[in-house]
């Protein structure tokens, strides 16, 4: 197998110099792969994605040690905007959209690359993936439903032409129908565009259909890693981490 798109080695993330949220994590994500991270609340999943996608200078979080490589290039500890330049785009857990901007403005806020024609093309393509956007163009994004906000966040991320798209808790707080919609969209992204995904998800039922590999996170480290099918079917996961009936 060729070199992974994302290589994480011994990544340690801490807040305010104090508490360690991610402790020496190793992770590989290959091109075209869908990688799932599971774990209880506070396990450090969000911190892992933030450690890869970068913290802004105004935040308390820091990558304390370890390495993050994208296509072999060392990008450890770079701020989010630089990571976007390297093709790593995160749809964060909270605040996925600019609430005071309209849906259309949310999309225009994304600094797209390429010439005018290709930008137009990408925009049309993304909008056709999420048809609701066309009807809601002039609505402030704060007034969208939770599911629509999630999709708008993903749409905005797609305009940045990600090589690796990270989505944190896509289904959190959504109705079952909305969860279905979001995962159908993710599924079609993977199927049609071969998108590489790194997702954090508690809803195992929804994630099962698209995940290739899975990692179970417990207090900042991976307790279990492997092919998604094996990990998700393992009795240990079903009982301990997911609380499903065996």
């Amino acid at each position: 197998m060729n070199e992974p798109l994302l290589q994480v080695r011994g990544l340690t993330v801490s807040y305010g110099g104090g508490s360690v949220a991610v402790d020496q994590v190793d992770l590989d994500v290959h091109d075209g792969e869908v990688c799932l991270v599971l774990g209880a609340n506070g396990a450090g999943k969000t911190s892992l994605l933030r450690g890869i996608g970068g913290f802004a200078a105004s935040e308390r979080g820091r990558v304390r040690s370890g390495k993050v490589l994208i296509g072999g290039a060392d990008v450890t500890g770079r701020p989010p905007r630089t990571m976007v330049g390297h093709g790593v785009v995160l749809v964060p857990e909270e605040n996925k959209v600019f609430r005071t901007l309209t849906v259309g403005e949310n999309l225009r806020a994304a600094p797209m690359t390429g010439d005018r024609g290709s930008r137009r093309e990408l925009l049309d393509e993304v909008v056709s993936l999420f048809p609701f956007i066309r009807e809601r163009m002039d609505l402030p994004a704060g007034q969208l439903s939770g599911g629509e906000r999630q999709l708008l966040g993903i749409a905005r991320a797609l305009l940045l032409k990600p090589r690796l798209l990270m989505v944190d808790e896509a289904s959190l707080g959504l109705s079952p129908i909305a969860v279905r919609k979001v995962f159908d969209s993710l599924h079609s992204l993977v199927a049609a565009k071969g998108m590489t995904l790194l997702i954090v998800e508690q809803n195992v039922r929804a994630a099962r259909a698209i995940a290739d590999r899975a990692h179970v996170m417990v207090s900042g480290t991976f307790a279990l890693s492997g092919p998604a099918r094996e990990v998700l079917e393992s009795e240990q996961v079903r009982r301990t981490y997911l609380g499903l009936e065996v």
């Binding site: 996608g53 970068g54 802004a56 105004s58 935040e59 701020p79 989010p80 905007r81 976007v84 330049g85 785009v89 995160l90 964060p92 605040n95 996925k96 959209v97 600019f98 609430r99 005071t100 901007l101 403005e105 949310n106 225009r108 806020a109 994304a110 600094p111 905005r156 991320a157 940045l160």
Partner: peptide, 24 residues
């Protein structure tokens, strides 16, 4: 203007703006 819209975006949430590729 696109620049003006990005300024409003960064004003609302500078971390999200940076994650969205805006040069805050």
């Amino acid at each position: 203007s696109t620049t003006g819209i990005r300024m409003r975006a960064a004003a609302e949430n500078s971390v999200l703006a940076s994650q969205g590729g805006i040069a805050v």
